[in-house]
């Protein structure tokens, strides 16, 4: 079944800059899709369009136009892990993760014990449960990314969007994020993430969509799309994909 359908999507900023031109693709359920491209290729704009932050009539979530979703209904179906978050108040990790439960709560309600349990399980899943009482203001960059993922897990949506999830992470935290996202994939989530790192895209994704200058250069399974020639075209620099044993290396 198709989770997300993008049908001939174009987007131009009010300043006149055209960010996306005639992009069409279908993302099946249980797919992990990498939106791969250089800086300014339109990846983040596409991500913003996918959760309704920027309006569009050309996106369908589970067969229904995105713009027909209510705010909370959309929050229950699609969650965002932003690249970073500014923490100006000392919420505990548990309090912060609980924010992901907002789409399930009435306007003036507070989280229930059940919500607390779900938030705690989300923290457990990213390995941060033992720090549940710690303040978010004390988190390192890697820990912060894990807590942002926990918030999205607590949201319980079928589709997860991540904006450059590992761009600022050291190798250990990068590995951790990949393991968590693989686990979420195994649990049946549809995951879409942006990255300019072809190696990371290949390690994590089942499918890859290459974006260049706002246009879809190629889309398909990673084995079909991640090739030396396409990557060279994508980045305008010589790229090589080679296989060493069971590993695929891209440089």
């Amino acid at each position: 079944m198709t989770a997300l359908k993008i049908d001939n999507l174009s987007f131009t900023y009010p300043s006149g800059t055209r960010a996306l031109s005639n992009v069409s693709l279908e993302v099946g359920q249980f797919t992990t899709l990498a939106l791969l491209g250089s800086n300014g290729a339109g990846k983040s704009t596409l991500l913003d369009l996918l959760f309704g932050w920027k309006p569009s009539s050309n996106i369908f979530l589970f067969g229904k136009p995105l713009k027909e979703y209510g705010r909370k209904e959309l929050g229950r179906n699609i969650a965002l892990v932003p690249q970073s978050e500014h923490y100006n108040f000392s919420f505990t990790l548990l309090e912060y993760t609980l924010f992901g439960r907002a789409p399930y709560l009435k306007e003036m309600a507070s989280p229930s014990d059940g919500d607390v349990r779900i938030a705690y399980e989300a923290l457990e899943m990213v390995g941060m449960a033992s720090f549940a009482k710690r303040s978010v203001t004390t988190l390192s960059g890697g820990e912060s990314q894990l807590v942002l993922i926990a918030r999205a897990i607590a949201q319980g949506s079928k589709v997860l969007l991540l904006d450059e999830p590992t761009s600022a992470l050291d190798p250990a935290n990068r590995r951790k994020v990949i393991e968590i996202l693989n686990l979420l994939h195994d649990q049946g989530k549809t995951i879409i993430f942006t990255t300019h790192d072809a190696q990371f895209a290949y390690e994590l994704a089942t499918h890859v969509a290459m974006l260049k200058g706002g246009k879809l250069l190629s889309f398909g399974t990673k084995e079909r799309v991640v090739t030396s020639s396409l990557l060279t075209t994508l980045y305008d620099t010589e790229m090589t994909v080679c296989t060493v044993g069971e590993k695929t290396l891209i440089y």
Binding site: R71, L74, P82, F89, F99, R151
Partner: peptide
């Protein structure tokens, strides 16, 4: 007073607050 919990969410960056179902 009745918005007291949701106020937490409004301290997030706007995009995050939107993604958890707020306007």
């Amino acid at each position: 007073f009745s918005y007291r919990w949701r106020m937490n969410l409004l301290s997030l960056q706007e995009k995050s607050a939107y993604s958890v179902g707020l306007n």
